[in-house]
Write a protein that binds this DNA or RNA. Structure first.
Length: 114
DNA sequence: CGATTGACGTACG
DNA sequence: TCGTACGCCAATC
């Protein structure tokens, strides 16, 4: 892979997040791992926190934790926004948790085929 | 300017 | 197999 040092780690997270297909979801670890920072999952979360300040808007609602739980729902205008958006894309949510998460899971390293 | 927290995940006991 | 500890980097207090 080319040198990704051209852009900040945050920007990489934003770009990958924007590449998430509709009706698909991914985890912080998957993104961090794809960027070569599997242990920096926390940073990915911070990036998502700033995602609301990024343009164009980043589909942060498609990013959940390893368990498929809507951990960042609190960062949205309303805690229901994240779930509503995911349901709008055809993803079922139960108790703030994605149903068939594995089925909707989107791995950048798999789909982007590096 | 220093310490703590934070949308997580992996390692170790 | 389950529980606890650590790492990561930046922002906030």
């Amino acid at each position: 892979m080319p040198k990704s040092s051209d852009i900040s780690f945050f920007a990489q997270v934003y770009q990958v997040t924007r590449l998430i297909p509709k009706g698909r979801v991914t985890s912080y670890g998957a993104i961090g791992k794809y960027l070569g920072a599997a242990k920096s999952a926390r940073m990915v979360g911070w990036a998502m926190n700033n995602a609301g300040s990024q343009l164009p808007s980043v589909p942060a609602h498609r990013v959940v934790n390893r368990l498929g739980i809507l951990s960042g729902k609190g960062a949205f205008p309303t805690p229901d926004t994240m779930q509503t958006l995911l349901e709008s894309e055809g993803i079922s949510i139960k108790n703030d948790k994605i149903v068939n998460f594995k089925k909707h899971f989107w791995d950048p390293s798999e789909e982007l085929t590096l």
